[in-house]
Amino acid sequence: MIRLEDLSVTYPGGVEALRGIDLTIDDGEFVVVVGLSGAGKSTLLRVLNGLVTATSGSVVVDGTQVVGASPATLRQVRSRIGMIFQTFNLVNRTSVLNNVLMGRLSVVPAWRSTLGLWPAEDREAAMVALERVGIVDKAYVRASNLSGGQQQRVGIARALAQEPRLMLADEPVAALDPVTSRQVMGDLQKINRELGITTLVNLHFLDLAKEYGRRLIGLRDGEMVFDGDIADVTDETFRDIYGRSITDEDLLAMGDSPADGTEDV
């Protein structure tokens, strides 16, 4: 379970990324976070695993306070949280398997991983993760030789290899084409359903959000302006969150042909 209380983040330089967020997420939920870029979506995800430090307030993940935690505690918390990135963040010059094995770094003794002497059970965990996203046949291929969609699946496999309780996905499909986007979102949905991993996804495309989300959180200028069931979401809701009319650019279906009008959802 995740509990945020009166959480604020101010970056050095005075930019207020998040203001007074109160939020509880139960185990097994699939939450989609929407908002304009700069609204604080990425920051929200990153305070959960401590990549961004909260200025004030409290972040409790599975009973552990993240704000002000020692480096060791932070590593402990992070080991149970998988993260998926917009730009995949793979190491291109090494194999897919090595990339996925990075998800095992928190459980393998440092000297073994440094020398590349991965224990058999960790190799097995990495292979299983690759099988789950359907690209185990690419295990020994260099990551740079994969397509964008395949690379993002390696990213998912790396997170899965951690055997996480919580999965954070920061704009996972922003760099992908519509067809691949749906496949990746489908993978995330399947993982949430089959493994019961709590999932938070930042999305830019509203139609994807409606299609895959169950609970929706709307951020605007660092404040939470919507939190509710996806079934209650209307075009009005999105207009509120975005502070403007919805355009084609906000929709995956139209996203690859930039807007010429202001058509509603």
């Binding site: 299983v128 099988e131 789950r132 359907g134 185990v136 046949d137 690419k138 295990a139 020994y140 399947k190």
Partner: peptide, 10 residues
């Protein structure tokens, strides 16, 4: 939609 197993591992 593959299931984990020893299937087509390289």
């Amino acid at each position: 939609t593959p299931t984990p197993g020893q299937s087509n591992r390289p």
